[in-house]
Simulated assay, not measured.
Amino acid sequence: MPGPCPEDGDRRPLATVLAVPIVLLTLVSAYFCWTALTIRPSGPWDDGAYAGIVLACVMSVGAAGVAAAVWVLPSARRVLGWGWVVPAVVLGVVAGVRWATGG
């Protein structure tokens, strides 16, 4: 008689372990997205502000991409629904639009 299937066991510890990096990366992405949206260049000559916007956008998109990559893992998709990764992806898209529009 075979033992219980490992997939039938309690999935809460696995969900917790996988949710922590997704939540942290979403918070990092939110911080950099907020930074990118709140930086206001003084004028067309303000290269430092434009560079800051680009850097914040890159960091936000990168953190959102890593969060999505963690969620794409089969073990994560089994225990975490779409709601865990959607905020990170939305933040990445917002930062990408900010980056594409150039401030």
Rank of each mutant, 00 (worst) to 15 (best):
23 V>S: 09
24 L>H: 13
24 L>I: 15
24 L>N: 15
24 L>V: 15
25 L>Y: 05
25 L>C: 05
26 T>R: 03
26 T>M: 04
26 T>Q: 03
26 T>E: 03
27 L>H: 10
27 L>I: 10
28 V>R: 08
28 V>G: 03
28 V>S: 06
29 S>N: 04
29 S>A: 15
31 Y>M: 13
32 F>A: 12
32 F>C: 12
33 C>M: 11
35 T>P: 04
36 A>R: 03
39 I>W: 04
39 I>F: 05
40 R>L: 10
40 R>K: 15
41 P>G: 09
41 P>E: 08
42 S>G: 15
42 S>P: 09
43 G>M: 06
45 W>R: 14
46 D>V: 08
46 D>E: 11
46 D>H: 11
46 D>G: 11
48 G>P: 09
51 A>V: 07
51 A>G: 05
52 G>N: 06
52 G>Q: 08
52 G>M: 07
54 V>K: 10
54 V>G: 05
55 L>T: 14
55 L>Y: 07
55 L>K: 13
57 C>Y: 07
57 C>G: 05
58 V>D: 15
59 M>E: 15
60 S>H: 04
61 V>P: 01
61 V>R: 13
61 V>E: 05
62 G>F: 13
62 G>A: 15
62 G>D: 12
63 A>G: 06
64 A>Q: 00
64 A>W: 00
65 G>F: 02
65 G>P: 05
65 G>M: 06
65 G>K: 04
66 V>I: 13
66 V>N: 02
67 A>F: 03
67 A>S: 03
69 A>H: 09
70 V>S: 00
70 V>I: 06
70 V>R: 00
70 V>Y: 02
71 W>G: 00
72 V>P: 02
73 L>S: 12
74 P>E: 07
74 P>G: 07
74 P>S: 04
75 S>P: 08
76 A>D: 02
76 A>P: 02
77 R>I: 10
78 R>H: 12
78 R>L: 14
80 L>D: 05
80 L>P: 01
81 G>Q: 06
81 G>V: 08
81 G>S: 14
81 G>M: 05
83 G>T: 13
84 W>T: 12
85 V>I: 11
85 V>L: 05
87 P>F: 02
89 V>K: 02
90 V>Y: 01
91 L>H: 00
91 L>S: 00
